[in-house]
């Protein structure tokens, strides 16, 4: 829940001028993964980080979870420095990375969770209760004594999530947690996270590729590209900012042969195109400064050899915000 400016809340995450460079290909210089990132995430907040591949989302999470050192700048978790006070930070955090299934295949679901509960030094009875609760919430009861290696990908991912919650962390990093998950498992995750944050004193930093997920789950969203935070606010406020312009959905066929020519039309803030292979119809989502550019835009679309099938103005979504800031859709 975002209380808005003026109301003081405890900071869970704070970064100032955070910069991270990686060694690039010889002769090409260093790669800037994070560039002067200033970020504030509060207690009791689900904060979403949206950005394309290579935008710096995972690098930021790795620095905050004490896996990686920053090249420059400061990062604090609950006021503790990630470089100098990592041991104290580790008691309060946990990390779940989507698409990974960390755990020992030869051990059962229960044994894997028990192992992690003991790494966090949880008292025996508390650990047992915690595991039972998590197993129920993630509907893993029938697989409690099943070896992890025998679980399907979706159930392995559920186990991964249960592991992330096992120490009841004050701050949970979810790095694309629904990546590769089936619809039901993804829904379980969202319900679990939203229920958990209500228990109080918790914070979630979530990176995702799914706009609807960010819109639905996050109290605030940061949009990151090329290592820089481009915008940071509640999904509603971000959408309101874009609503000043015009968001349009245009269906065409075939797809654009030269999308850059459409993007370069004066007044086009962003464009994304989604091709439907089955129907052969491409949906363009456009964020425009105003509607006066429409005639130039349509003529450019026709210059691409495309036929306009349908068009209409749409309510701004988080995706439109993203398109207007980054210039392209997240899938591109």
């Amino acid at each position: 829940m975002f209380l808005g400016p003026g109301l003081k809340r405890d900071l869970s995450i704070e970064t100032k001028g955070l910069r991270r460079l990686f060694k690039g290909i010889p002769g090409k210089g260093d790669v800037v993964a994070l560039d002067q990132v200033d970020l504030e995430v509060y207690d009791d907040e689900i904060f979403g980080l949206l950005g394309p591949n290579g935008a710096g989302k995972t690098t930021l999470i790795k620095i905050l979870s004490t896996l990686l050192l920053p090249t420059q700048g400061e990062a604090r978790i609950k006021g503790l420095d990630v470089v100098k006070q990592a041991p104290q930070i580790r008691r309060m955090i946990n990390l779940v990375s989507g698409g990974e299934t960390p755990g020992y295949g030869i051990l059962s679901v229960k044994e894997n969770l028990w192992f992690f509960s003991q790494l966090y030094g949880l008292p025996r009875d508390f650990a047992k209760d915690r595991i039972t609760k998590l197993v129920d919430q993630l509907e893993l009861q029938d697989y409690l004594n099943t070896r992890m290696a025998k679980l399907s990908t979706g159930y392995k991912q559920r186990l991964n999530l249960a592991r992330g919650f096992v120490n009841d962390p004050a701050l949970l990093f979810l790095d694309e947690p629904t990546l590769g998950l089936d619809v039901i498992s993804a829904r379980h995750l969202r319900t679990l996270v939203k229920g958990w944050i209500k228990t109080g004193g918790k914070t979630v930093l979530l990176t995702t590729h799914y706009m609807a997920e960010a819109d639905q789950m996050c109290d605030r969203v940061g949009i990151i590209n090329h290592g820089k935070i481009l915008a940071c606010d509640t999904p509603q406020r971000l959408k309101t900012k874009v609503a000043g312009g015009a968001t349009w959905k245009i269906e065409i066929t075939p797809n654009l042969s030269q999308p850059e020519s459409v993007k370069s039309v004066q007044g086009v803030l962003g464009l994304s195109q989604n091709d439907n292979i089955e129907t052969g119809i491409t949906t363009l989502k456009l964020v425009l400064e105003d509607e006066s550019v429409m005639s130039d835009l349509l003529s450019k679309i026709r210059d691409n050899g495309c036929k306009v099938l349908n068009m209409g103005k749409s309510e701004p979504t988080l995706e439109d915000v993203y398109i207007s800031l980054v210039g392209t859709g997240l899938e591109e």
């Binding site: 580790r90 790494l119 030094g121 592991r163």
Partner: peptide, 14 residues
Amino acid sequence: RYEILKNIYISPGT
């Protein structure tokens, strides 16, 4: 193989 090292590392005992 088990992709578990980083999760063990960020536990209190590293």
